[in-house]
Simulated assay, not measured.
Amino acid sequence: MINILPRINELAYKSRTAGLTQAEQVEQQVLREDYLREIRGQIENTVTNLTVIDPVGEDVTPVKLRIKRADIQ
């Protein structure tokens, strides 16, 4: 679990109920950007490590993905 998620949720709740100060709004935006960066990194890592196999059993992984995987390794 991403460790900033509880704070993001806390600020979201406060935003809906009492409102946020200017500093809290800035903090919320920074935390959301960090969260999205983390999620995108996880998705990119997952996709990069995929291998696509057709019904016959042959590797049909897209060339772009193979190149990206080779660059990382």
Rank of each mutant, 00 (worst) to 15 (best):
Q29W: 05
I53N: 04
V47P: 13
I39H: 12
D34N: 11
V26A: 14
I43T: 09
T46Y: 06
R66D: 04
P55N: 03
R32M: 03
L20H: 00
Q42G: 09
G41C: 07
Q42P: 06
V30S: 13
R37C: 09
A23R: 12
I53E: 08
D54N: 10
D54L: 02
D59E: 11
E38I: 10
L50M: 10
L50G: 12
A23V: 14
E33T: 11
P55T: 04
L31C: 14
T61N: 01
I53Q: 01
I39L: 14
Q29N: 11
K64V: 00
Q22R: 11
G57M: 00
G41V: 07
N45V: 09
L36V: 14
V60Q: 09
I39T: 15
L31T: 12
I43E: 07
V60P: 07
G57T: 00
T46R: 04
Y35V: 14
L20P: 03
T61Q: 02
Q28M: 14
V30N: 11
I39Q: 14
V47F: 05
T21N: 11
L65E: 02
R37L: 07
V47E: 15
E58K: 01
I39E: 15
V30M: 13
E33N: 14
R32F: 03
Q28S: 12
V30A: 12
V60W: 05
Q22M: 08
V26I: 13
D34M: 09
V52D: 11
D54I: 05
N49R: 05
D34G: 08
K64N: 05
D34P: 04
D34T: 13
V63P: 06
R32I: 06
V63W: 04
L50I: 11
V56E: 10
L50A: 07
V30G: 08
T46M: 09
E38T: 15
L36P: 15
R66W: 02
R40E: 14
L65D: 03
Q22N: 13
L50Y: 07
Q22V: 11
L31M: 14
P62N: 05
A23H: 14
L20R: 02
T51Q: 04
N45G: 06
T48L: 03
V60D: 11
Q25P: 09
P62H: 04
R40S: 15
V26G: 15
G41Q: 08
E44V: 12
T21C: 08
V47H: 13
V56L: 03
V60S: 10
R37N: 13
I39W: 09
L31Y: 09
E38K: 13
R32N: 08
T46D: 11
T48A: 01
T46H: 07
I43Q: 11
N49Q: 10
Y35K: 10
E38C: 09
V30Q: 12
N49C: 05
Q25I: 07
Q25W: 06
V56H: 04
I39D: 15
V47Y: 08
R37Y: 05
I39C: 14
Q28W: 10
E58Q: 06
L20E: 06
V63M: 06
V47A: 12
T61P: 02
V63I: 12
D34W: 09
L31G: 13
N49L: 06
T51M: 05
T46F: 01
L50T: 15
V47T: 15
A23W: 11
Q28P: 15
V52I: 13
Q42N: 08
